[in-house]
Deep mutational scan, measured.
Amino acid sequence: KRPVSAMFIFSEEKRRQLQEERPELSESELTRLLARMWNDLSEKKKAKYKAREAALKAQSER
């Protein structure tokens, strides 16, 4: 099983909040919005998710 990506971790963290704030969005619209949010995120903020990705990857390799 492959470890999850930093973007996937970000998306899972933000998805529920966005669904509550924007219930009119379809699943595909929500996914596009999350992708745009990820792309607009600064490298400094992405680092938090990339660190979690690395930790999960290291854990799965044990």
Results as ranks from 00 to 15, higher is better:
residue 1 K to G: 10
residue 1 K to N: 05
residue 1 K to Q: 05
residue 1 K to Y: 08
residue 1 K to V: 07
residue 1 K to I: 14
residue 1 K to T: 11
residue 1 K to A: 03
residue 2 R to Y: 15
residue 2 R to G: 04
residue 2 R to V: 12
residue 2 R to A: 06
residue 2 R to N: 14
residue 2 R to Q: 02
residue 2 R to F: 12
residue 3 P to H: 11
residue 3 P to M: 13
residue 3 P to R: 09
residue 3 P to C: 03
residue 3 P to K: 15
residue 3 P to A: 07
residue 3 P to N: 15
residue 4 V to E: 15
residue 4 V to H: 05
residue 4 V to F: 06
residue 4 V to N: 08
residue 4 V to Q: 09
residue 5 S to C: 06
residue 5 S to R: 06
residue 5 S to N: 15
residue 5 S to V: 05
residue 5 S to L: 06
residue 6 A to F: 01
residue 6 A to Y: 06
residue 6 A to G: 12
residue 6 A to V: 01
residue 6 A to L: 01
residue 6 A to D: 05
residue 6 A to R: 02
residue 7 M to I: 06
residue 7 M to C: 11
residue 7 M to Q: 15
residue 7 M to P: 11
residue 7 M to V: 11
residue 8 F to G: 15
residue 8 F to V: 13
residue 8 F to Q: 04
residue 8 F to I: 13
residue 8 F to N: 15
residue 8 F to D: 13
residue 8 F to A: 09
residue 9 I to G: 02
residue 9 I to D: 01
residue 9 I to P: 02
residue 9 I to S: 05
residue 9 I to H: 01
residue 10 F to I: 00
residue 10 F to C: 00
residue 10 F to W: 10
residue 10 F to K: 00
residue 10 F to L: 01
residue 11 S to G: 13
residue 11 S to L: 12
residue 11 S to H: 06
residue 11 S to T: 14
residue 11 S to A: 10
residue 11 S to W: 10
residue 11 S to K: 13
residue 11 S to N: 03
residue 11 S to R: 07
residue 11 S to C: 08
residue 12 E to A: 09
residue 12 E to L: 05
residue 12 E to M: 09
residue 12 E to D: 09
residue 12 E to I: 05
residue 13 E to D: 12
residue 13 E to I: 05
residue 13 E to A: 04
residue 13 E to T: 06
residue 13 E to M: 07
residue 13 E to F: 02
residue 13 E to P: 01
residue 13 E to S: 06
residue 13 E to H: 04
residue 13 E to G: 04
residue 13 E to C: 05
residue 14 K to Y: 12
residue 14 K to P: 00
residue 14 K to W: 06
residue 14 K to H: 15
residue 14 K to R: 13
residue 14 K to M: 12
residue 14 K to E: 04
residue 14 K to I: 09
residue 14 K to A: 11
residue 15 R to P: 00
residue 15 R to M: 05
residue 15 R to C: 04
residue 15 R to G: 06
residue 15 R to H: 02
residue 15 R to A: 05
residue 15 R to W: 03
residue 15 R to V: 03
residue 16 R to D: 03
residue 16 R to Q: 12
residue 16 R to C: 14
residue 16 R to N: 06
residue 16 R to T: 10
residue 16 R to A: 13
residue 17 Q to C: 04
residue 17 Q to P: 05
residue 17 Q to R: 08
residue 17 Q to L: 13
residue 17 Q to H: 09
residue 17 Q to S: 14
residue 17 Q to V: 14
residue 17 Q to Y: 06
residue 17 Q to T: 13
residue 17 Q to A: 10
residue 17 Q to W: 08
residue 18 L to V: 13
residue 18 L to T: 09
residue 18 L to S: 01
residue 18 L to W: 02
residue 18 L to A: 06
residue 18 L to M: 08
residue 18 L to G: 00
residue 18 L to P: 00
residue 19 Q to S: 13
residue 19 Q to R: 14
residue 19 Q to K: 15
residue 19 Q to N: 07
residue 19 Q to A: 12
residue 19 Q to M: 15
residue 19 Q to P: 00
residue 19 Q to L: 14
residue 19 Q to C: 09
residue 20 E to K: 15
residue 21 E to Q: 14
residue 21 E to R: 09
residue 21 E to P: 00
residue 21 E to Y: 03
residue 21 E to N: 15
residue 21 E to T: 15
residue 21 E to A: 08
residue 21 E to C: 10
residue 21 E to I: 08
residue 21 E to F: 04
residue 21 E to W: 05
residue 21 E to G: 06
residue 22 R to A: 06
residue 22 R to F: 11
residue 22 R to L: 06
residue 22 R to M: 09
residue 22 R to K: 09
residue 23 P to A: 03
residue 23 P to M: 03
residue 23 P to G: 03
residue 24 E to R: 04
residue 24 E to M: 06
residue 25 L to S: 03
residue 25 L to K: 02
residue 25 L to I: 07
residue 25 L to Y: 05
residue 25 L to M: 14
residue 25 L to T: 02
residue 25 L to E: 01
residue 25 L to G: 00
residue 25 L to H: 00
residue 26 S to I: 03
residue 26 S to M: 11
residue 26 S to R: 06
residue 26 S to T: 06
residue 27 E to W: 02
residue 27 E to G: 09
residue 27 E to H: 02
residue 27 E to V: 05
residue 28 S to Y: 09
residue 28 S to R: 08
residue 28 S to N: 11
residue 28 S to A: 11
residue 28 S to V: 09
residue 29 E to W: 01
residue 29 E to M: 05
residue 29 E to Y: 02
residue 29 E to A: 07
residue 29 E to P: 00
residue 29 E to S: 05
residue 29 E to F: 01
residue 30 L to P: 00
residue 30 L to H: 04
residue 30 L to G: 03
residue 30 L to M: 12
residue 30 L to Y: 09
residue 30 L to K: 08
residue 30 L to R: 08
residue 30 L to E: 04
residue 31 T to A: 12
residue 31 T to R: 10
residue 31 T to D: 14
residue 31 T to N: 15
residue 31 T to G: 08
residue 32 R to L: 14
residue 32 R to P: 08
residue 32 R to V: 07
residue 32 R to N: 06
residue 32 R to E: 10
residue 32 R to H: 15
residue 32 R to Y: 06
residue 32 R to F: 05
residue 32 R to M: 08
residue 32 R to Q: 11
residue 33 L to P: 00
residue 33 L to D: 06
residue 33 L to F: 04
residue 33 L to Y: 08
residue 33 L to Q: 09
residue 34 L to P: 00
residue 34 L to W: 00
residue 34 L to Y: 00
residue 34 L to D: 00
residue 34 L to M: 12
residue 35 A to P: 04
residue 35 A to N: 14
residue 35 A to T: 15
residue 35 A to E: 14
residue 35 A to K: 06
residue 36 R to Q: 09
residue 36 R to W: 05
residue 36 R to P: 01
residue 36 R to Y: 06
residue 36 R to K: 10
residue 36 R to L: 09
residue 36 R to D: 15
residue 36 R to A: 14
residue 36 R to M: 08
residue 37 M to I: 04
residue 37 M to R: 06
residue 37 M to S: 04
residue 37 M to C: 05
residue 37 M to G: 02
residue 38 W to V: 00
residue 38 W to A: 00
residue 38 W to F: 06
residue 38 W to I: 00
residue 38 W to N: 00
residue 38 W to L: 00
residue 39 N to G: 07
residue 39 N to Q: 14
residue 39 N to K: 09
residue 39 N to W: 04
residue 39 N to H: 08
residue 39 N to F: 11
residue 40 D to N: 03
residue 40 D to H: 03
residue 40 D to P: 00
residue 40 D to C: 04
residue 40 D to S: 08
residue 40 D to I: 00
residue 40 D to F: 07
residue 41 L to S: 04
residue 41 L to Y: 01
residue 41 L to C: 04
residue 41 L to R: 01
residue 41 L to I: 07
residue 42 S to E: 07
residue 42 S to W: 00
residue 42 S to D: 14
residue 42 S to Y: 01
residue 43 E to N: 15
residue 43 E to D: 02
residue 43 E to L: 04
residue 43 E to P: 01
residue 43 E to R: 02
residue 43 E to W: 03
residue 44 K to P: 12
residue 44 K to R: 07
residue 44 K to E: 13
residue 44 K to G: 13
residue 44 K to D: 15
residue 44 K to L: 08
residue 44 K to H: 07
residue 44 K to A: 10
residue 44 K to I: 06
residue 44 K to T: 13
residue 45 K to F: 08
residue 45 K to R: 11
residue 45 K to T: 10
residue 45 K to G: 14
residue 45 K to I: 10
residue 46 K to W: 01
residue 46 K to S: 01
residue 46 K to M: 02
residue 46 K to C: 01
residue 47 A to Y: 07
residue 47 A to S: 12
residue 47 A to H: 03
residue 47 A to Q: 14
residue 47 A to P: 01
residue 48 K to A: 14
residue 48 K to M: 13
residue 48 K to D: 15
residue 48 K to V: 08
residue 48 K to S: 12
residue 48 K to H: 04
residue 48 K to G: 10
residue 48 K to I: 03
residue 49 Y to T: 00
residue 49 Y to H: 01
residue 49 Y to F: 04
residue 49 Y to D: 01
residue 49 Y to K: 00
residue 49 Y to A: 00
residue 49 Y to E: 01
residue 49 Y to C: 01
residue 49 Y to Q: 00
residue 50 K to Q: 14
residue 50 K to T: 11
residue 50 K to R: 13
residue 50 K to W: 07
residue 51 A to F: 10
residue 51 A to T: 12
residue 51 A to W: 04
residue 52 R to A: 05
residue 52 R to H: 08
residue 52 R to S: 07
residue 52 R to Q: 14
residue 52 R to G: 05
residue 52 R to N: 03
residue 52 R to F: 04
residue 53 E to F: 05
residue 53 E to D: 07
residue 53 E to A: 11
residue 53 E to P: 01
residue 53 E to I: 02
residue 53 E to S: 07
residue 53 E to L: 05
residue 53 E to H: 06
residue 53 E to C: 09
residue 53 E to V: 10
residue 53 E to K: 02
residue 54 A to K: 14
residue 54 A to L: 11
residue 54 A to N: 13
residue 54 A to D: 15
residue 55 A to W: 07
residue 55 A to M: 12
residue 55 A to Q: 13
residue 55 A to V: 13
residue 55 A to T: 11
residue 56 L to T: 15
residue 56 L to R: 08
residue 56 L to H: 12
residue 56 L to C: 06
residue 56 L to S: 15
residue 57 K to P: 09
residue 57 K to C: 12
residue 57 K to Q: 06
residue 57 K to M: 09
residue 57 K to H: 12
residue 57 K to A: 10
residue 58 A to H: 15
residue 58 A to P: 09
residue 58 A to N: 15
residue 58 A to E: 10
residue 58 A to M: 07
residue 58 A to S: 11
residue 58 A to Y: 05
residue 59 Q to S: 12
residue 59 Q to F: 05
residue 59 Q to N: 15
residue 59 Q to C: 10
residue 59 Q to H: 08
residue 60 S to G: 15
residue 60 S to T: 12
residue 60 S to C: 13
residue 60 S to N: 11
residue 60 S to W: 12
residue 61 E to C: 10
residue 61 E to T: 14
residue 61 E to Q: 08
residue 62 R to Q: 14
residue 62 R to T: 12
residue 62 R to H: 11
residue 62 R to F: 02
residue 62 R to S: 13
residue 62 R to C: 05
residue 62 R to G: 15
